[in-house]
Nucleic acid binder design. Structure first.
Length: 223
DNA sequence: CACCAGGCAAGTA
DNA sequence: TACTTGCATGGT
């Protein structure tokens, strides 16, 4: 099987199994950006609690989040874990967002992808995955989001080497897929859901996994 | 009780 | 460059 087609095969199998997921239906792009920071190494259920508490306190806006003290902000997002750290990260990102884009998502969307990504990575607390989540889900840019599940799933199928960093995996998808925003969103959502359901860290509960049929085919590295 | 969850940055060698 | 460690809550 040609290597380029492996990624589309994987997508097709997961998509047929789960269907359209409509992830981060994005009521508000700012909420998406906040969620991207809060979900760092954290269960999404905890992030939901934190976001709800921000709403209750009217802190879920660039203006309010900038004016509130870091201590009060931290207390509000406490259920998401690492709350002191994340309060600093939220305000660091928010300052960047207000200073360089006047708190306007539309202005941010007007920026070219690559320079914007480089700039995001310079903000304290914004790493590769958080940057790509903001670009893809809040800004509508075709920046593929890789994560722990992506790595684990590709690794379990021997499609990537043992030690593969974030950059390598992202480049893999970016090279072999068309820069299509709905495709990137659905692909990442499918990888996370498939990983959660069938590809846990310790015990691989592969039974029923839509990628089961891949086991015997095309085991070459696609890198 | 132990282990895990949609990372990141700072320190060390 | 390649490890190691701190950061913290809530669910299983």
């Amino acid at each position: 099987m040609p290597q380029q087609d492996v990624l589309l095969t994987i997508y097709g199998l997961m998509d047929a199994h789960f269907g359209d997921l409509k992830w981060w239906p994005a009521k508000d792009p700012f909420e998406v950006m906040v969620g991207a920071i809060l979900t760092q190494n954290t269960a999404w259920t905890n992030v939901e609690k934190a976001i709800h508490r921000l709403q209750e306190r009217d802190l879920l806006s660039p203006e309010a989040m900038d004016l509130v003290s870091v201590e009060v902000l931290a207390e509000a997002i406490r259920p998401s874990g690492y709350y002191r750290l994340k309060a600093l990260r939220l305000q660091a990102f928010n300052r960047f967002f207000q200073t360089e884009y006047s708190g306007s998502v539309a202005a941010m969307r007007a920026a070219p992808l690559t320079p914007l990504r480089e700039r995001l990575l310079q903000v304290r607390g914004i790493g590769p995955e958080t940057a790509d989540s903001i670009l893809l889900y809040a800004c509508g840019k075709p920046s593929f989001v890789s994560d722990a599940y992506t790595q684990r799933i590709l690794r379990r199928h021997d499609l990537i080497p043992e030690k593969s960093d974030y950059r390598l995996i992202r480049d893999l998808f970016m090279r072999h897929l068309p820069p299509d925003v709905p495709l990137f969103r659905q692909y990442h959502a499918l990888l996370v859901l498939t990983g959660k359901t069938f590809c846990r860290r310790t015990v691989p509960l592969c039974a029923g996994c839509p990628l089961g049929s891949l086991k015997e085919e095309s085991r070459e590295d696609v890198t």
